Computed example of a mutant assay.
Amino acid sequence: MPINRVAIGLPREDVVHPGALKAALAEFISTAIFVFAGQGSGMAFSKLTDNASNTPAGIIMASLAHAFGLFVGVSTATNISDGHVNPAVTFGAFLGGNISLLRGILYWIAQLLGSTVACLLLKFSTHGMTTSAFALSSGVNVWNAFVFEIVMTFGLVYTVYATAIDPKKDDVGIIAPLAIGFVVGANILAGGAFEGASMNPAVSFGPALVSWDWTNHWVYWVGPLIGGGLAGIIYNLFFITRTHEPVPSTSEF
């Protein structure tokens, strides 16, 4: 079971080690790049269309901006921190035994700070425009949004595992950032008109904090964490094969 491989970690190695701090900085920068592009595209479209961002054109613009921004964010951080750029991805990796708890918490802090700084920069550079918190559309209740977030984040983290974490990924590893960006863009096309399609607690946290709007905010944490956690456990349980070959004796050398 994946849960058997869950590790707490050591502060000296997973929190204060220079390698850990570099990885956290990479997560901070990549998350800021992603949120600045995604949130900024929505603010730009609202300005151009007099606050009519929740239209077919606005959804397509958000989908493209998030797909491109995440592609860049994951690509730039992959060689340093594995390019999570998302607390739900980090949580799924933790439950699958691929990152320690302490390193995961460090990533979460970096991701939330990156999102917040990106939103503050957007508010400053747009002369005080509102960084819109994620919200439900008319006729959509919190449980509809909750299921949306679980399903979409499951698809995202499942894609991360298949293309970036799976030890057998060598033949597809080069397309991992592209596939991850594509699945987020596709999910925004599917769920953006209903509840914003976050799939990422950090993406929701920054705008909510800067605009101080926490309406239904729990949906954008609990849904993605459940979806990401399920994807991590299921992919590890059914698709990752770990062989335990005996250590060769000296006579075999």
Rank of each mutant, 00 (worst) to 15 (best):
P11M: 11
D14V: 02
G19I: 01
L21S: 04
L21G: 01
A24L: 04
L25S: 05
E27C: 06
E27W: 04
F36L: 06
Q39V: 15
S41C: 04
G42H: 01
M43C: 01
A52S: 11
A57E: 07
I59E: 02
I60R: 01
M61N: 10
A62C: 00
L64M: 12
A65I: 01
A65E: 06
G69D: 02
G73W: 06
G73T: 03
V74M: 02
A77L: 12
T78N: 03
T78K: 12
I80E: 00
P87E: 09
A88Y: 07
A88N: 08
G92T: 07
A93I: 10
L95I: 15
G97D: 08
I99T: 13
S100K: 06
L101S: 04
I105D: 00
L106K: 05
A110L: 05
L112A: 08
L113C: 13
G114P: 10
G114N: 07
G114T: 09
C119W: 13
L120T: 12
S125R: 07
S125V: 06
H127N: 09
H127L: 09
T130R: 05
L136G: 02
S137F: 00
S137A: 10
A145T: 05
F148Q: 09
M152S: 11
T153D: 11
T153N: 09
G155K: 08
L156F: 10
V157E: 04
T163Y: 07
I165H: 03
V172F: 01
L178R: 02
L178I: 15
A179P: 11
I180V: 12
G185L: 07
I188H: 04
I188L: 05
A190F: 08
A193C: 11
F194C: 12
A197V: 13
S198I: 08
M199I: 15
N200G: 14
V210N: 12
S211H: 15
W214Y: 15
T215C: 12
H217I: 15
W218G: 14
V219R: 15
Y220D: 13
G223H: 13
P224G: 13
L225M: 14
G229E: 08
A231E: 09
A231D: 10
G232E: 03
I233Y: 05
L237D: 10
I240L: 01
R242F: 01
E245G: 02
E245K: 13
P248K: 01
P248H: 03
P248Y: 05
